[in-house]
Design a protein around this nucleic acid. Structure first.
Lengths: 199, 199
DNA sequence: GTCTATATTCGGATAGAC
DNA sequence: GTCTATCCGAATATAGAC
């Protein structure tokens, strides 16, 4: 379908250049059509962008669910390390991640509310999934810490990897991620005793 | 001077709406002049934006230097906690932080290289300052960990606070910061023995 | 469903009077 | 140094032929 070719080109252009930096003419040019032809598939630029955003969060949430399922029997640290690695890898091979990261950070102002609403729903849904995983880890006595806090601190790791990746220094992103991970995991383990004592 | 009024309005508008989302007409309107008058003070929009960016990094670097100096005799954890608190507080009372965070994350494409060059220099300079502080902490035996890694992991905390603040949930930013901080600090302490054994 | 042609608006920028 | 007037280009969008 022609709509999918348009979506594909638009996704990577929005990911690289943002909403305002991407013209319909540029999208059309990528796939060898005229900009006016886009209106046969989408009501306009807003419609195209918001379709991509909705679709992206749906896909990303489903991917998270499958990821969790796949690592359900793994140890917590194996799962979390895989989650970080997957984040890093997807950033380079799939523009979906870059697309939503950049465009939720600095959305076109006239779409701010809609973008933010979708983002918050996504964050909430993913958080629920991860907290469940941390609760499981507690019940299996892999860790002995407040699951909400462990989850928040882990999602902070992901945030920071995102920032470094977008800033463009791949090597630094990896180095920083490893340093953060080591301290994070040490911290999780070290907090065990406090939790057990009911703090 | 008129140029400073323009800068003030431009800074907060760029911070809220980004480069493309901010028109010269809008900036002018804020301070009760016409957009053409801006050209008496700046060569154009690019010039105004880049002036602000350069100035911002200069100011922010100097502020970091003074901050470090002010906390020179404090303990490492007091200093780091103050650094996080300052970050949080400035975000709400000064648009400089928001300005560079948002506009380095998704810069106008035609200024990408210039923005990135300035950002990297700033990151490098601040990093040097903080690493020195971590090295001092090691020599004072406050911690016993690789200073580069401790610094990277701490800057990851700052990244994540930035993300949460920009996403707009103040309360979540604070909660997440506290969870991350606790685990981070536990992790730093816990890593002591390894470092002492020369790992 | 893609094209040509065209309408319209907006934003950056220049010229020149005061 | 601010104003009015004006230009130019770019971008979204619509109408209608094929």
């Amino acid at each position: 379908m022609g709509a999918n070719k348009i979506k594909g080109a638009a996704l990577s252009l929005f990911a690289e250049r943002g909403y305002d930096g991407t013209s319909l003419a540029l999208i059309a040019e990528q796939i060898g059509i005229k900009k006016q032809s886009i209106y046969a598939h989408f009501k306009g630029k807003e419609d195209l962008f918001l379709s991509l955003l909705t679709e992206t969060f749906t896909i990303e949430l489903k991917r998270e669910e499958q990821f969790l399922e796949h690592y359900y029997t793994s140890s917590l640290d194996a799962f979390l390390k895989a989650s970080l690695a997957s984040f890093l890898s997807r950033y380079n091979h799939d523009s979906r991640l870059k697309f939503w990261l950049k465009n939720t950070f600095l959305p076109p102002i006239h779409l701010y509310d809609q973008v933010n609403a979708q983002l918050n729903r996504y964050i909430h849904d993913v958080e629920s999934l991860y907290i469940k995983r941390f609760e499981t880890a507690v019940s299996k006595q892999e860790i002995a810490m407040n699951p909400q806090q462990a989850n928040l601190a882990f999602s902070a790791l992901l945030d920071s990897v995102a920032v470094e990746l977008i800033y463009g220094d791949q090597q630094r992103a990896v180095t920083k991620m490893e340093a953060s991970w080591n301290i994070y995991w040490q911290g999780l383990i070290a907090t065990n005793s406090d939790f057990e004592r009911g703090r």
